[in-house]
Design a protein around this nucleic acid. Structure first.
Lengths: 201, 201
DNA sequence: GACGTATGTTAATAGTGATAACATTTAAAG
DNA sequence: CTTTAAATGTTATCACTATTAACATACGTC
């Protein structure tokens, strides 16, 4: 019962390490963290982490899972605060995405990083798809109420909208948007693009 | 005159190193190269490179300059092979961007990387703007011939179009597009978005 | 209570960017 | 020319990385 009596075994090192890593990413503003930093923050030796993660990448993958959940929170909040099937609903989803990219800058960079290994990529595909499907379903509801002039599917439209939102978010993330247009306001760009994609024939 | 007589001084180490770095990035398909690799390829000791670059980042910055020139080639070719002021001209520019992202995968990743230091970012801003301005001017010519229903400026439109192209390119780059929509064809997405952005009110 | 497994530890390795101290070549100045 | 300073190389060294090896301790089960 007395924890300080047996400090040899941590008890929940795996989860603690994931949280420590996430906190480090949060505070340093970069996902370029080291195993040693995580170990220190968890008050454990660096090799101990290898009992719970095959390598550094595996730890980051675990953080990515958390990150996807975090993004889902943003999307869920947007969903809950607007009426499904409305244009405002789609706007809210896109704006939530931009807000997430800005609020959780380092995590945004981390989560879309290429995994290299096709194996690992597949493992994370589900989490990525989940967010995308939220958008696609929202678009379906929108199309139910507002029949578009074009004949693109909800899937095609979602891909188009996500691409646009992702482009804006990424340019903002890498601080390039200002370079192109110092007046550009990401949110304005997004709602403009959204309307164009939904309505154009 | 006899080069092999005095191999101590390389002669043009700075440029050789930049080219070696670029070739390494090309062949390995990643811009995560090491100073040691570049030194070896240039047949010089690693510290020698520090006579010509303050640090690794400075070397990569030099490669980025080359990369931007390379992208300009793609854009220039697109410009030369289509009639200015036409929709086909704008399509060609966007498609050239996508093709560059695919052909020169590692370089595409490298060139848009965030510089962190605002100082360094400014230094590269010019190169980034150059490509953007090509698009903006092409849009101006297009608007001269095809008065749009909306009243967005060429700058706003260029920002919107670049964001979209960049989003598609980035999702493709990070191998996420398939995850969302395995039928999605980047070029088709782009021309669809282009028309929507240009024509929608 | 003995014993295997899980989970820690410290020691050690190869590879990283970078600096210091030293060597050689080149170019300028006398 | 020759002396000398600057430019540009070299090898040795450092602090730090991810990771593995060898060893130690605690936990759960028979």
């Amino acid at each position: 019962m007395n924890q300080s009596a047996s400090p040899y075994h941590h008890g929940d090192l795996r989860n603690s390490a994931i949280i420590a890593a996430a906190e480090l990413i949060e505070t340093t503003g970069s996902y370029d963290i080291t195993i040693a930093q995580v170990a220190k923050k968890t008050k454990v030796s660096a090799p101990a982490l290898y009992r719970h993660f095959t390598d550094k990448e595996a730890l980051l993958t675990a953080v990515r899972e958390l990150t996807h959940l975090g993004m889902m929170d943003y999307l869920a909040h947007a969903q809950a605060s607007t009426e499904p099937g409305t244009l405002a609903h789609l706007d809210a989803l896109g704006l939530a995405y931009l807000r997430f990219a800005k609020d959780k800058r380092a995590f945004f960079g981390l989560m879309w990083e290429d995994q290299g290994d096709p194996e690992k990529r597949r493992a994370e595909a589900r989490a990525k798809r989940t967010g995308f499907q939220v958008l696609q379903e929202a678009i379906e509801l929108y199309f139910d109420r507002h029949r578009p002039r074009h004949n693109r599917t909800s899937l095609q439209t979602a891909t188009l909208m996500w691409s646009t939102a992702h482009g804006i978010a990424t340019l903002q993330h890498n601080r390039i948007l200002d370079t192109f247009d110092d007046e550009a306001e990401p949110g304005t760009l997004l709602v403009t693009a959204t309307r164009a994609i939904l309505n154009a024939d």
